[in-house]
Amino acid sequence: MPQISQLAETFSSQIVWLLVFFAITYFIVGRGMVPRVMDTMDRRSKQIADDISAAHAAREQADKEEEAWRARENENRARAQALISEAKAEAAAKSEKKIAAAQKRLDKKLEEADERIAASRNDALEEIETVATDATQDIVARLAGIKVAKPAAKSAVKESLANG
């Protein structure tokens, strides 16, 4: 086993060179590079944590804003609904009034027309009486040769019209 058989001649060289190269590795790698590597990792994990917390904050903010927007939206909707119903009521009232006015006008017109019709009928009736009186005088004069006075004829016509 060379480890034992060569021990006496080589142990000093082994120890010295191991110390030399281990020390070089320790100071360059362990002392020089490892802290930098770990520093980079720390900075990265810190940045990741920061980013995550920033994202959390942003999400919370967004949630809050959405909440506010929703509330505002609901309010607006309610207000719009109120406006619509108000306008509807107003319009309904207006049209009712209009309809009522139109109704009144129509009623008046109807009444007038009725009156006119009644008047025309009276006129027509009087005309008929006149015509009938004339005709009666004429017929009596022709058939009996008696001249009937106009008032007598008229009363007779009236009587028979009333009966007829």
């Binding site: 080589t10 000093s12 060289s13 082994q14 010295v16 060179w17 190269f21 281990f22």
Partner: peptide, 11 residues
């Protein structure tokens, strides 16, 4: 003796 050996080389 601190001769530079193959062991030292691989270190």
């Amino acid at each position: 003796n601190i001769a530079f050996t193959n062991s030292a080389l691989w270190m």
